[in-house]
């Protein structure tokens, strides 16, 4: 026991960092958003009473949910494909998924601007092939925000799903097959439940990241594609720090609430080893 309590001190540096760099700033934001000159601030009331702000919040949530869903349906099969490869190929495929993540999100967004522009590569090709007579409106649309964000966030989904799949004991599936399950049935009743934990984690991760996006809607989004993070940035630029802090709190609370809902709603479908052993 003595050895254990000694190792316990090892968490102190990390704990101190968290305290100073996360908990303390959060407390400052909490104070700035909720209180003003000794009394409670009217920022939350201002947020709730303004239909435009509520609309931005709703849009941000809906947008994040859709992005996460697209990433899930595109990313799960990719992860499955990688997990089914031989051990020799897996590291290479995983590496390929990681490559785009090493490039700055800003650079990738600018590249999309070149591709999707009115006189960009996509439009130029379509025009040259005679498929369209006038350039299509691709950039500065909600669709382009989805496209770019899915491209940016897909690796997170693939990696989360893959790491859950890689942990699945192959013998379970073999056992199912030996006991007479068809391949589809073995997948649906054994593999899928075992991998669902990864899928839900991936969904939550992508959702969380989408809730805070700022660069992509600002650069390729249309006039109405303002997200919460853009709204916060505007408040900070205009020195309305208190209101900006209140908006940040609303965003944080909404994200936490949405994540809890996702977790609760999926709990009964997700196989959790911890729960199994406890029961």
């Amino acid at each position: 026991m003595r050895r254990l309590s000694a190792t316990r001190f090892l968490i102190l540096p990390g704990l101190a960092l968290l305290l100073f760099l996360f908990v303390a700033p959060l407390a400052v934001i909490l104070k700035a958003g909720l209180f003003e000159d000794g009394g409670t601030s009217g920022y939350l009331a201002r947020f709730i009473s303004n239909g435009a702000y509520l609309e931005v919040m709703e849009r941000t949530v809906a947008f994040s949910a859709i992005v996460s869903a697209i990433c899930l349906f595109a990313g799960y099969p990719i992860a499955f494909f990688i997990a089914r490869q031989t051990k020799k190929w897996r590291p290479l495929l995983v590496f390929l998924i990681f490559v785009p993540m090493w490039m700055s999100i800003l650079v990738r967004t600018y590249s999309w601007m070149i591709l999707l522009g009115r006189e960009g590569i996509v439009n130029a090709t379509l025009m040259k092939l005679g498929l369209v007579s006038a350039p299509l409106r691709l950039i500065y649309t909600t669709g382009s925000v989805y496209l770019v964000l899915v491209q940016v966030l897909l690796p997170f989904m693939v990696m989360t799903c893959y790491s859950a799949m890689a942990e699945i004991d192959e013998t379970h599936i073999r056992a199912a097959r030996l006991l007479g399950a068809r391949p589809l049935s073995a997948f649906l009743r054994v593999f899928l439940p075992l991998s669902l934990e990864g899928a839900v984690s991936g969904f939550v991760l992508v959702f969380m990241l989408s809730m805070g996006v700022f660069v992509v809607p600002g650069l390729v989004g249309g006039p109405r594609d303002t997200m919460m993070a853009n709204l916060i940035a505007t408040q900070v630029e205009q020195t309305n720090w208190g209101f900006g802090a209140a908006l940040a709190l609303v965003l944080l609370a909404t994200t936490l609430a949405a994540m809890s809902v996702i977790r609760l709603a999926t709990r009964r479908f997700v196989f959790s080893p911890a729960r199994e052993t406890a029961a």
């Binding site: 522009g117 006189e119 950039i139 500065y140 600002g218």
Partner: peptide
């Protein structure tokens, strides 16, 4: 004029870039 505005720019480089590539 709102329906004809494809982008509301924030940084000074944006309108220049949009003019340059015909956006």
């Amino acid at each position: 004029i709102k329906p004809s505005i494809v982008s509301w720019w924030k940084a000074g480089a944006q309108p220049v870039q949009m003019l340059a590539n015909g956006e």
